[in-house]
């Protein structure tokens, strides 16, 4: 199951373009029936499938620079893309699994019994736990989308790269007799990518040279987060600023920016 021409969906986020407006987060909430609480300021129990972090170079005024960093689930393939992502490896209930036909790490809510081992294993804090039952005040239950089931108390949830959109696109392709062909680049796009007003996010098949992400991920300024961990994430970032690229990994002071990325590339 490890043929290199298999579809491998991934994302490239241009941090030079991201303005931190937060549209991706709300796009995700509204697409995936993500619940909300009265107080969402404790980010440890706030459910976000994608969260935009703000990082700083910490230089004094007026040399300060900041950069926004949107973080969805990285859909780690593990070493050699064998699907040994940190979370999948530890799940005792097979509630999360690696889909070799798309490279997407799934989450099946009804299988999850809430041990949160996966949350401890995930180095990116991509997973969130439902500590409470969801409440939609007023008539807000009416806006819930039937494409994604509402989650209940006691389960873990995370970004699915809007897998239901993939399924809908596949259904449509099957209906039109195109089930043998790969999906077109625009047929399947996650909600966050689609809504980004600055066009900072690009999504597609990382293995398909016709898709924009194939070229973008080879940008010399492209990097992934915590590559030293060998998680092999499918979310790439581009930044023209060195301090931002350096913030993407735990560099030792003597290590040159980009050295971890090169080491990881050799390993895979």
């Amino acid at each position: 199951m490890t043929q290199t021409n298999a579809t491998k969906y991934g994302m490239v986020i241009d941090l030079d373009k991201c303005t931190g407006c937060g549209a991706c987060m709300v796009a995700c909430y509204s697409e995936n029936n993500v619940p909300f609480k009265k107080d969402e300021s404790n980010k440890l129990d706030s459910i976000n499938w994608i969260r935009v972090f703000k990082i700083s170079n910490r230089k004094p005024y007026p040399d300060t620079e900041v950069c926004y960093l949107p973080m969805p689930c990285m859909h780690c393939g593990g070493i050699g893309d064998h699907g040994h992502s940190p979370c999948v490896s530890v799940c005792p209930a097979t509630a999360t699994d690696y889909d070799h036909s798309t490279g997407i790490v799934s989450q099946i809510y009804t299988r999850c019994f809430g041990c949160r081992y996966c949350m401890a294993a995930c180095p990116y804090h991509a997973r969130k736990f439902n500590w409470w039952d969801p409440v939609w005040p007023g008539d807000m239950e009416k806006y819930l989308s039937p494409n994604v089931s509402a989650r209940m108390r006691g389960v873990v949830e995370k970004c699915s790269f809007c897998f239901h959109r993939y399924q809908l696109a596949k259904d449509r392709a099957y209906h039109e007799g195109r089930h043998q062909e790969p999906l077109g680049e625009n047929e399947y796009q996650p909600a966050c990518v689609e809504s980004c007003p600055a066009g900072a996010m690009t999504f597609g098949d990382l293995n398909n040279p016709k898709h924009a992400v194939y070229t973008l991920k080879k940008n010399p300024h492209a990097f992934r987060l915590l590559e030293r961990l060998q998680t092999n994430p499918k979310v790439y970032y581009i930044s023209s600023r060195e301090w931002v690229r350096r913030a993407g990994d735990n560099y030792l002071s003597h290590e040159e920016t980009g050295s971890i990325k090169r080491a990881a590339a050799n390993h895979h």
Binding site: N33, Y109, T110, G114, D133, P134, W136, E141, L144, S145, P146, S149, A150, R151, M152, R153, G154, V155
Partner: peptide
């Protein structure tokens, strides 16, 4: 624990 009737099914 997952079958609360108040978890809505759209």
């Amino acid at each position: 624990t997952q079958n609360w009737p108040w978890t809505p099914v759209p």
